[in-house]
Design a binder for these strands. Structure first.
Lengths: 212, 212
DNA sequence: TTCCGTCTGTTACGGATTTCACAACCGGAG
DNA sequence: CTCCGGTTGTGAAATCCGTAACAGACGGAA
């Protein structure tokens, strides 16, 4: 019904999909919003409401068909396709990303990696050959790349992001410790363990005695 | 004033602090909420409102004193202290975490790493010696550890989290691709690049033509 | 067939968060 | 000393989001 689906809802769908995949793995064929909510620490009402943005997937009195709902969620999110990812920056962090085996099985194929360091160019990392940063533009124009992963120092991250955006990339996963500026129609997500820790310390401190 | 500060506000403070640190680095001594908002893509009103939960830090007509506000934010968040972190799971991901140089300079000191694999135990990674998983409980009881980083397979993550919580840890940074259950008074943050990508694909697909 | 327990989809409500708008304030110029 | 452009802090309004509650539907039991 609604063409305006809140972003918070979209962000929860992959979590639901992952939980459903785990249930399917265990051979479960049916799950209620209550059971799913219990596993994920969200209220059943929230799950039902979120799903209702996209259609009616459940059966009253029964619950949801696990493989069926999983398939629909994967369609909605586009997880039934293969996505092409490139990694910019093949330092320690970039290498870990390229070598990480968790993307491929989920349909995210790393098709290229770039680095500005000449000593890095030409080396094979995780099965692909590192290209020169100067080849980035050309590569993006000659190959479909859906998502750019930014793993460069903060000082050059904005420049890399601009380059990716100008080349037509629509989604960016940013590992650099800064907040790059992107046009409104580009998706960006930030992976920043330090920032995550820095918000938790507030609560540790609070629990330790509130006082300063 | 308020003893009930929204969590979203707390989560934004480290971002503000980081931006202020960058400004201080450049020698800026004063910044307005407008200028800061422009750099971070948030509204000036939001910044002012967020800061107002903690006091009055600005001067009308001038803005905020950069080093002064930075110091206050770091106090509020507890970033003026040294925090002790342990890493559980020293596979590829855990190794990358232990070797990552970004935690130390921000006051997060990795004091121990644990792994269940006997082949891993005793090896030195990033300057520390990997301990056996069986030593985890003992270590946590004999040493102050503030934050636990979980980098184990999803199948055993809940078990590790439970162990950390039982030993008195108050904050967890979870890299495992699942959602562990924790008591309400424990902070937990999730680092999951796959989930992040999976919400962006929805928008890529949307932009590609809306239709399925 | 009818009844009953269960569970969805949805609407209405309430709370939380963001944005708006403006009075109060600051410091410098004249 | 007074005026003025610029900026904060903040209550009020608007928006967004989550929760509650219930009508309607389903499947099995009798």
């Amino acid at each position: 019904m609604a063409l305006e689906i809140p972003e918070v809802v979209i962000n929860r769908l992959p979590i639901y999909a992952r939980a459903l995949a785990a249930l399917a793995e265990q051979g479960e064929t049916v799950v209620s919003s209550q059971a799913l909510g219990q596993a994920l620490d969200v209220t059943p009402a929230q799950i039902r409401k979120d799903l209702s943005y996209f259609g009616r997937f459940g059966k009253q009195g029964r619950g949801y068909n696990v493989p069926g709902l999983l398939t629909r969620l994967r369609e909605i999110l586009g997880l039934d396709r293969q996505w092409h990812v490139c990694v910019v920056g093949v330092g320690r962090l970039g290498q870990a990303i390229v070598e990480y085996g968790g993307f491929g099985p989920q349909g995210f194929q790393i098709v290229a990696a770039f680095d500005a360091d000449p000593a890095m160019v030409g080396r094979r990392v995780g099965g692909i050959t590192v290209r020169a940063a100067t080849e980035l533009d050309g590569f993006l124009h000659n190959n479909r790349v859906d998502i750019g992963v930014v793993a460069v120092p903060a000082a050059v991250a904005q420049q890399v992001v601009d380059q990716l955006v100008k080349a037509g990339i629509r989604a960016i996963l940013n590992y650099a410790p800064m907040t790059p500026h992107v046009p409104r129609d580009i998706s960006i997500r930030h992976i920043d363990p330090v920032i995550a820790m820095q918000s938790m310390t507030f609560y540790i401190k609070l629990a330790e005695g509130g006082g300063k």
